[in-house]
């Protein structure tokens, strides 16, 4: 089962510079495990040590934000297209407050 994954510039050091890689999995979690087996370390940039989606990235299945599709449990199908984008966020307040604010 092939799922296309579009990788942002900042994570291409894990994919040998490739902008698009292929993976497999029935869920986003499964796909990320598969990708990490081929591109070691990639998963750690997307998932927190506690096992949730990292707030620094947005992951989309086709045209939907995975946060609205069950996050790591989002179901995937052959031919789906995954897009990873670094979240664009910030602001004047200190990091601890922002972390609490952005915690999802």
């Amino acid at each position: 089962m092939a799922i296309e994954v579009r990788v942002p510039t900042i994570l291409r050091s894990y994919t040998g510079g490739s902008k698009i890689v292929e993976g497999a999995g029935d869920t986003l979690s499964g796909l990320l495990d598969d990708l990490d087996a081929k591109h070691s370390g990639l998963k750690g940039r997307l998932i927190t040590p506690e096992g949730g989606l990292h707030r620094f990235v947005n992951i989309y299945v086709n045209d939907e934000d995975v946060r609205f599709l069950g996050a790591l449990d989002a179901k995937l199908n052959d031919g789906d297209s995954i897009t990873i984008l670094p979240a664009v966020a910030g602001g004047a307040l200190g990091f601890a407050a922002a972390a609490a604010f952005f915690g999802r």
């Binding site: 670094p86 979240a87 602001g91 004047a92 200190g94």
Partner: peptide
């Protein structure tokens, strides 16, 4: 982005999130 009460210098939050090198 704008800072509306502080100087135009990246905060720690800005640096943490900066994902477009």
């Amino acid at each position: 982005h704008s800072h509306t009460a502080t100087e135009a210098y990246p905060s720690r939050t800005d640096v943490s999130f900066a994902g477009e090198p």
